[in-house]
């Protein structure tokens, strides 16, 4: 027999206050300092001081952005946390936060952060969905953040599991956008820091569905914007008639940036279907 209890934070019994970070700052209950220290795959360390005579539980919100003084990426908090502070106590906690500007460099240990504000509503909403779905994929969190802070396309949000697909579906619903038919992968940054964006697309993955009225050989070809065939991606020989799903795995390392069309042709060169992609 074991006694199992679930923790409950109460404010009434012990007189502690549960406040959002926003409120705590506005009311002067706390002061903060952001440091950069790479610990346990994270780099944002938040130092908090309780300026009051009472214990305070500070709720750090997902979607809060901490801006650096120089042209350095801001931190975007991706996972909310609760920091319990005794009266006049100080605490340092590591925060799950991602880079908020893909074109800037990641913070260094001497980077200073001067101000904070909440991010746009859609970003906050997306991060809340991510946490509600208990998704702990930090790369995905980063892709979601860059989608909102830098306008990265929905195709750059890489989802694998059902949970992750559900997140993307909710993001699409929130934006009234169509679920992307392909995913565009980027290389890891050469700096080795996963907060940096490489801007080097590596792979496009997706599925195309076609109906064939007779068995045939089909080829997947890449056409550039001038309508010129650039590359044969793959060939499916002896493809039976009926519905078929054509998986696409396009390695982009030898494909120049631009807009392309993926064309499914039969071996007589007759077009069966086509889709647009942006490399």
């Amino acid at each position: 027999m074991v006694v199992m209890t679930v923790w409950m934070i109460t404010t009434a019994s012990y007189g502690s206050t549960m406040v959002t970070f926003e409120d705590a700052i506005k009311r002067g209950l706390i002061s903060y300092h952001v440091n950069t220290d790479y610990v346990a795959n994270r780099s944002m360390e938040l130092e908090l001081n309780n300026n009051s005579n009472n214990p305070v539980n500070v709720q750090l919100e997902a979607g809060r952005i901490f801006y650096a003084t120089q042209d350095i990426q801001p931190y975007v908090v991706t996972r909310p946390s609760i920091i319990a502070l005794a009266p006049h106590a100080q605490d340092e906690v590591m925060i799950y936060a991602r880079c908020g500007n893909s074109s800037a460099k990641s913070p260094l240990t001497d980077t200073r952060f001067e101000r904070t504000s909440m991010g746009p509503q859609l970003l906050v909403q997306a991060l809340n969905e991510l946490n509600n779905l208990r998704i702990n994929n930090n790369s995905l969190a980063q892709q979601v953040v860059w989608h909102y802070t830098n306008g990265h396309s929905l195709n750059s949000i890489i989802v694998y599991s059902d949970n992750e697909k559900e997140l993307l579906k909710r993001i699409c619903d929130n934006e009234n956008a169509e679920f992307p038919w392909y995913q565009k992968h980027y290389a890891a940054s050469q700096t080795g820091n996963d907060l940096d964006f490489s801007n080097i697309p590596t792979l496009i993955q997706g599925d195309m569905q076609v109906v064939l009225t007779q068995p045939t050989n089909i080829q997947i070809k890449l056409y550039n914007s001038d309508g010129k065939s650039v590359k044969t991606i793959s060939a499916f020989l002896n493809q039976p008639a009926g519905q078929c799903t054509i998986p696409l795995n396009i390695n982009l390392s030898d494909i120049a940036t631009g807009d392309y069309k993926i064309v499914i042709e039969n071996d007589a060169g007759v077009k069966i279907d086509e889709r647009s992609i942006a490399v």
Binding site: N199, I200, N217, S229, V230, T232, D254, D267
Partner: peptide
């Protein structure tokens, strides 16, 4: 330079 890599073309043809 990255965005304008000269592009080679390749074509796979199924022979009759």
């Amino acid at each position: 330079a990255i965005s304008q890599t000269p592009q080679e073309t390749s074509d796979l043809r199924i022979l009759s």
